[in-house]
Design a binder for these strands. Structure first.
Lengths: 195, 195
DNA sequence: TCTAGAGTTTACACTGTGTCAATTGACAAA
DNA sequence: TTTGTCAATTGACACAGTGTAAACTCTAGA
């Protein structure tokens, strides 16, 4: 039966999330994931062709479970550009901690793994669109600070929101997610909003 | 003679820089470095105990060759906090492209290599001090924007200047180093300087 | 009862790091 | 000239982790 198949697949994805979050995405091997899933290492390859494919599938699974679309809704429904920007940061800042383990693993795999690099880049490009949309909303309100083209502003916003920045502020500097969100809002407003 | 010893060591370091810069720090193996140095792979281990130690030594060698201290002098000699901040960004923005290959290799090695992670962290802590000093100068001029503690401001400045951010803006967004420097100055001034 | 599918065990190829032992070649001191 | 030392060489190997392959087991449906 294929239902058994899907159950096992899901079990692997759940186990991957669990163990990755537990270890902050570092040093987790296929055999660890297999053990956590309660199957043999080789059986994992019956469901995912490679480590990169597993990690990629895990991020997508995570987006589904965490209901990415619902979380994005508020910023998309925002009335003005300023509000949209703030809500987007709010969304992202609270989302990152929940996907950090998986994201970090994918990030670290970039070294050796071409496919992992591509998967990560794909994710980041999706987020780039979100940044661009928020900046565009600001721009069409005539609220984008002078000196910025929408393109450049979106590039900078995108870069500021990159996972390693969140990681640095929380892990190295000891910030809470709350502090991170509030601070990013301040920086972004002072940087991009007119006046 | 030990002079021969040192010559070979330097030859390895030079070769490491060359090949790392050439490949953007990705996928360079000990055997590649050995070939580039004109010696056997095993001979590299006569001079450096591990890959991490070699990479660490290479960054330090690079700092020497590029005369890190001379480059830091202008920002340290700045009259006011605002000027100091600008000159620090100027320094760092022009320095990163010159150490990118080595830095990236060290960054990528963090996955598997404990020692590489420690080496990188050490480097970053040194830079953190530079950020803190610049912010302190601004603060003691009474020019730090309201809402910031020096600690928080330094944390954010430090994070903004992290290598992956430069990497993202140049590699993914197609910015030049010039653009990067100018933009970072703008962002930092709007964010941290009063008024 | 036969078959297909999922999973298991065992084994192995491959890559890259790091270690070890035996050897060579050069140079310096006795 | 001999001896000792030191850098470097070659070749072999241990170890970890990914991915592949083959042969076997167990279950459930036709």
């Amino acid at each position: 039966m294929s239902s058994q198949n899907i159950e096992t697949r899901t079990r692997i994805l759940e186990a991957t999330v669990r163990i990755l979050e537990e270890h902050g995405g570092r040093g987790v091997r296929m055999s660890d994931i297999a053990r956590e899933s309660g199957i043999s290492r080789q059986a994992v390859y019956l469901h995912f062709a490679s480590r990169a494919e597993l990690l990629d599938a895990t991020t997508k699974y995570r987006d589904e479970v965490l209901d990415l679309d619902r979380r994005l809704a508020p910023s998309r429904a925002a009335k003005g550009g300023v509000e949209r920007l703030a809500l987007y940061i709010e969304f992202w800042g609270n989302y990152v901690p929940e996907i950090y383990g998986v994201a970090k693993a994918l990030l670290l795999a970039q070294d050796t793994d071409e496919a992992a690099a591509a998967a990560w880049q794909g994710r980041m490009l999706a987020m780039r669109d979100g940044c661009r949309a928020a900046i565009d909303a600001l721009h069409s309100d005539g609220q984008l600070a002078p000196g910025w083209t929408p393109k450049n502003a979106a590039d900078v916003l995108w870069t500021m929101l990159l996972v390693p920045n969140w990681e640095n502020l929380t892990a190295e500097c000891g910030w809470s997610t709350q502090q991170y969100v509030r601070c990013m809002k301040t920086v972004v407003e002072r940087t991009f909003v007119k006046e």
